[in-house]
């Protein structure tokens, strides 16, 4: 059984907000299958009871004093926007009929 099918690749692409052409879907399926086959070697390791590590250093989350500080100005924040009215980011209209994947 393949580790990942073309349908799973297309589903994952929808989750990641990517559209794949037929050629891309074919190539990505082949590449991801090769990578997941390689990663299957991890299955040979007994990890029963091993704590998963998300971060290498157990740092406390440092807190700064709760005092106002200057942040990015609205002009600076909007300077790179592909669409802006000077005070907001503009995006295409969100249609009622649109459903989230």
């Amino acid at each position: 059984m393949p580790r990942i099918t073309r349908e799973q690749v297309l589903y994952t692409a929808r989750l990641a907000r990517l559209r794949l052409t037929d050629d891309e879907a074919r190539a990505m399926t082949r590449h991801l299958e090769a990578i997941l086959d390689y990663a299957a070697q991890l299955e040979t390791v007994d990890t029963e009871g091993v704590e998963p590590m998300s971060h290498v250093m157990a740092l406390e989350t440092p807190l700064r004093s709760d005092a106002p500080q200057a942040g990015l100005s609205a002009d600076d924040a909007l300077a790179n926007a592909p669409g802006s009215d000077g005070t907001h980011f503009l995006v295409p209209k969100i249609l009622d009929s649109e459903t989230q994947a």
Binding site: L42, V45, T47, V50
Partner: peptide, 8 residues
């Protein structure tokens, strides 16, 4: 599984 391997 990968995070557990990272611990090991």
């Amino acid at each position: 599984k990968a995070q557990q391997l990272r611990t090991l």
